[in-house]
């Protein structure tokens, strides 16, 4: 009985592995929300949630990527424009560039949000 359950579960997990591989190869990132203006911090927050929170944490306290809030956060930048430039190009091996995924307005919005809430 238990052996049959384990055998069945193994088949189920094998199917799950196949589904995972298919998803890896087919799922595209969600399109970012559109924004009306670069100063729209609410839109910047929404863009952050869907594009940045996966690495920097939903509360911006860091994760795979560094913390974007708290003491010393973003100290290497001198303003939202510098943040936007970095977000656009990324850094090889540590952060992907977003210039092909977000519009300039969207990058400006999320950069303004990150800078404003640091």
């Amino acid at each position: 009985m238990f052996k049959s359950f384990v055998n069945g579960f193994q088949v189920l997990v094998a199917a799950l592995a196949v589904v995972t591989v298919v998803l890896l190869l087919t799922v595209s990132p969600q399109p970012p929300p559109t924004v009306a203006a670069s100063s729209d911090l609410a839109a910047g927050e929404a863009i952050f949630a869907s594009n940045c929170a996966g690495c920097h944490g939903a509360d911006r306290t860091g994760g795979v990527g560094p913390a974007l809030t708290g003491e010393g956060a973003l100290s290497r930048f001198n303003g939202p424009e510098a943040v936007a430039k970095f977000v656009s190009t990324g850094a090889p091996g540590s952060m992907p560039g977003f210039e092909t995924r977000l519009t300039p307005d969207e990058i400006a919005a999320v950069s303004a949000f990150v800078w404003d809430s640091r």
């Binding site: 238990f2 359950f5 384990v6 193994q10 997990v13 799950l16 995972t20 996966g54 992907p96």
Partner: peptide, 26 residues
Amino acid sequence: DAHRLSGTLVFALSLPVAFHCLWAIG
């Protein structure tokens, strides 16, 4: 069989974790 079940669970639980690692981070 419990040994096999725990190994299968290890693999099953690793899938959503690996998915995010590979798909979202690389």
